[in-house]
Amino acid sequence: MSTPSQNGQSACGMVGGCVHQLRLFFIALQFFTRLPIPRWVGYEPMWLQHASRYYPLVGMVVAAVTGGVYFVSALVLPAAVAAVLSTIAGVYLTGAFHEDGFADVCDGFGGGYTRERILEIMKDSRVGAYGAIGIGLLLLLKCAALAHLPIPAAVAALLIAHPLSRMFSAALIWQLDYAKDEGKAKPLAQSMSGTEFLIAVLTACLALVVVGFAGWLSWWAILAGVAAGCASTAWLARFFVQRIGGFTGDCLGAVQQVAEVMIYLGVLATMRGMVS
């Protein structure tokens, strides 16, 4: 039979564990967005290594902002304008963190023929022709896909695409090797256990369940979006392993961006008869 002292220690341990998980979420939020976090959170390098479990939860925050901007804008403006404004809100909120990674991947793999040259190009802060063209076309495709969805479906697609695409990105951390000795994603890449990835999966699935049971998207549309995002992630992961032996922080950003767009396209493909 446990004593009051043991019960108190157990309760304190549970509270401390919850506080630590909240701290990890705030660390992830600070790393992936411009949003300020409470001063009591503090910072330790080890925390960042384990914060990737809340990468999809950060995506839910981004989804809430971009979805809100799209919904409000679409009430008074054309859908195409709402899509652009929503995309701008997401880029500003994240500091173009993932878009920058996608552009670097376009430059690196477009202009490099060896592993060393690809990594060297991606490390360069300058954006080349491949990167500029690639990110321009990606953003255009993203806005076009959202603009051609009915307003409720577009908002719902945003709500599932942001956390889900970040879960796909986290899958690379979980399964692949980091391809270089240093870089902006190295703290995240050092360790991600199966339990940590499971937390990321459950977080992303929460968004899917809410959207599905609320009836904002059909389950068929959700399944199509998940399948499209999964397929693009699997292809990119295989491509990265073949070319550089693993992933970098830029590769994570590229996976997030491509998976996000593919989710929109998967949802859109199920609604051809509903959209003009």
Rank of each mutant, 00 (worst) to 15 (best):
L172I: 00
M167Y: 08
A179M: 01
L159K: 10
S169F: 03
K180S: 08
Q190W: 12
S165L: 07
L159D: 11
A189N: 07
S165K: 08
K186H: 01
E196I: 09
Q190V: 14
Q175V: 05
E196A: 11
D181H: 09
Y178G: 06
M167N: 06
P163S: 02
A161L: 00
L159Q: 12
A170M: 00
K180T: 12
Y178M: 07
G183E: 00
K184I: 15
T195W: 15
M167L: 07
S193Y: 05
I160H: 07
A170F: 04
Q190A: 15
S191T: 12
K184E: 12
S165I: 06
E182T: 14
M192L: 09
A179S: 00
E196Q: 14
G183V: 03
A189V: 09
Q175N: 09
G194K: 11
L188N: 05
T195D: 11
T195G: 14
K186F: 03
K184C: 13
K180I: 11
G194N: 13
F197E: 05
A189R: 11
P163F: 09
S193C: 06
A170Q: 04
D181M: 05
L172G: 07
D177T: 06
A189Y: 13
A189S: 11
L188I: 01
H162A: 10
K180A: 09
K186R: 12
P163M: 01
S191I: 13
A185Q: 05
W174S: 06
A179V: 03
S169K: 07
Q190Y: 13
A185P: 07
M167S: 01
W174K: 08
I160L: 04
G183W: 08
G194W: 14
K186I: 02
I173E: 05
F168C: 13
A179N: 06
Q190M: 15
S165C: 10
K186E: 08
E182S: 13
S169Q: 12
Q175S: 10
D177H: 09
M167D: 00
H162E: 15
E182C: 08
S191Q: 13
L159T: 11
L176Q: 15
A171I: 05
L188P: 02
S191F: 15
S169H: 04
K184D: 13
F197L: 05
A171N: 11
S165D: 07
K180N: 00
P163R: 07
S191N: 12
S191R: 14
F197T: 02
K184F: 15
S165A: 14
A170Y: 05
A189W: 10
A185F: 10
S193A: 00
A170L: 06
M192H: 08
R166P: 08
W174Y: 15
L188K: 04
E182W: 08
L188V: 02
L188H: 00
E182P: 00
R166C: 04
S169V: 02
A185W: 02
A171P: 02
A170H: 07
G183Q: 06
Y178S: 03
K186N: 02
D181W: 09
L164F: 15
Q190E: 15
G183S: 10
Y178H: 07
H162D: 09
L172W: 07
S191C: 13
L188G: 00
F168T: 05
P163C: 02
D177A: 05
P187S: 09
F197I: 01
M192C: 03
L159Y: 12
L176T: 10
I173H: 09
R166H: 08
A161S: 11
G183F: 00
L172D: 02
F168I: 03
S165M: 10
I160W: 04
Y178F: 13
